[in-house]
């Protein structure tokens, strides 16, 4: 998160307004943290203590809510499903995007501009808006209620193609020419020259892709019917619904914590990489 500092970034003058503004923002940060703080406090509070709305941590923290959440919903299975969905989407995307990115970056052929425009259409026709017809297609392909059915609409990625094309174009052409002289085929050239040199772009794309599909809800909701194929988001929604009836808010907090933990942890560990990836997703 910490961006490189310019020499002037620190306050040069002692002006009142910016200080007040900073105080205000610090106050807002407290407000921002409240839902998370409540989640932690409620999740670790002994079950049935009745003090659901208190923001004071319990003096005797308990894992009872977690044990209950763990027993009520198959979070490990949901976790694996989410993992498979994200990994599957990413794996295919990396292939399709690097191939297409290479084509648009380095090959010259008639109709290239048109095809590229055709790709970019996907940026506008967000798959989630097309969920009704896409669901029909998925059912016709026999992929209804399967994990590949969740992945399929995301396998081609205009954004990934665009990102890879931009990165590939920054690779010095001479390297490829040298490889050509050595008789390397297109596959060898992509694999041995382009991909190793565009690792940062690949990482950025991977982080953005995994984050967005990990958090996705509506499309899997449409495709998945069987509980053993639910990703975490669906599992949490259904878990929340049944726990809400029980007035078990600590349980909901614990479930939410369990579901949010993997990405939150990854973010806290690899903060800078995440931030740079998100930035890269928006630029170029």
């Amino acid at each position: 998160m910490s961006a490189p500092t310019s020499p002037l970034a620190g306050p040069v003058t002692r002006e009142v307004t910016p200080r007040l503004a900073r105080l205000l923002v610090a106050g807002l940060a407290l407000v921002w943290a409240v839902p998370f703080w409540w989640m932690l406090v409620a999740a670790f509070r002994p079950a049935g203590s009745g003090a659901d709305a208190s923001l004071l941590p319990s003096l005797a923290p308990s894992l009872a809510n977690f044990a209950e959440a763990w027993a009520s919903a198959d979070f490990p299975l949901y976790f694996v499903n989410s993992l498979v969905i994200c990994a599957g989407i990413l794996a295919v995307q990396l292939v399709t995007a690097s191939l297409a990115g290479y084509v648009f970056a380095r090959l010259e052929f008639p109709g290239r501009g048109f095809l590229f425009g055709l790709f970019l259409v996907q940026l506008m026709l967000v798959p989630v808006v097309l969920l009704v017809p896409n669901l029909k297609t998925i059912a016709a392909l026999g992929l209804y209620d399967t994990l590949p059915g969740v992945m399929a609409p995301y396998c081609a990625t205009a954004f990934g193609t665009f990102l890879m094309r931009q990165s590939f174009r920054e690779v010095p052409r001479e390297l490829e020419d040298a490889a050509l002289i050595d008789g390397a085929g297109w596959w060898a050239r992509i694999r041995l020259i382009y991909l190793p040199l565009t690792k940062p772009a690949l990482v950025a794309f991977s982080i953005v892709s995994v984050t967005s599909h990990w958090n996705e809800f509506l499309w899997p909701l449409m495709v998945i019917n069987s509980p053993d194929r639910r990703p975490l988001t669906l599992g949490l929604a259904s878990f929340t619904l049944s726990a809400e009836g029980m007035q078990a808010w600590g349980l909901i907090a614990a479930g939410t914590f369990l579901v949010s933990l993997p990405l939150l942890a990854a973010f806290l560990i690899f903060q800078r990489r995440f931030v740079n990836s998100f930035l890269a997703s928006g630029i170029k």
Binding site: V84, A87, G88, L90, A91, L94, L147, P148, M151
Partner: peptide, 11 residues
């Protein structure tokens, strides 16, 4: 990627 695909097919 190949491994993941295989896992998906299995599931």
């Amino acid at each position: 990627a190949a491994l993941a695909l295989a896992a998906v097919a299995g599931l």
